[in-house]
Amino acid sequence: METLERITVDPNVCLGQPTIRGMRITVSFVLKLLASHLSVQEIRN
């Protein structure tokens, strides 16, 4: 699956913010976690 296919926008989910497909986790939240120096592995857990 191409990386961008994992990001979806649905006006009925998370106020229309971009989310990870099938989850209610916003892309901005994931970016904030990465900015706070968490590793990808730590975020996945």
Rank of each mutant, 00 (worst) to 15 (best):
E2I: 02
E2L: 07
E2H: 02
T3L: 15
T3A: 14
T3Q: 11
T3N: 10
T3W: 09
L4H: 06
L4F: 07
L4W: 05
E5Q: 11
E5T: 06
E5H: 06
I7F: 11
I7V: 15
T8R: 08
T8W: 00
V9F: 03
P11R: 11
N12P: 03
N12H: 12
N12S: 13
V13P: 01
V13I: 15
V13N: 05
C14Y: 01
C14V: 05
C14E: 11
C14W: 00
L15R: 14
L15K: 14
G16E: 09
Q17M: 10
Q17N: 10
Q17H: 07
P18G: 09
T19R: 04
T19Q: 05
I20D: 00
R21P: 01
R21D: 08
G22H: 01
G22A: 05
M23W: 08
M23N: 07
M23A: 07
M23T: 15
M23L: 13
R24T: 08
R24L: 04
R24G: 07
I25H: 08
I25T: 15
T26N: 10
T26L: 12
T26S: 14
V27N: 10
V27Q: 14
S28V: 09
S28Q: 14
S28D: 14
F29L: 15
L31E: 12
L31H: 06
L31Y: 04
K32S: 12
L34G: 06
L34C: 12
L34T: 08
A35L: 11
S36L: 03
S36R: 03
H37I: 00
L38V: 00
S39N: 05
S39E: 04
S39I: 08
V40W: 09
V40Q: 10
V40L: 15
V40R: 12
E42C: 03
E42A: 12
E42R: 04
I43L: 03
I43A: 03
N45K: 09
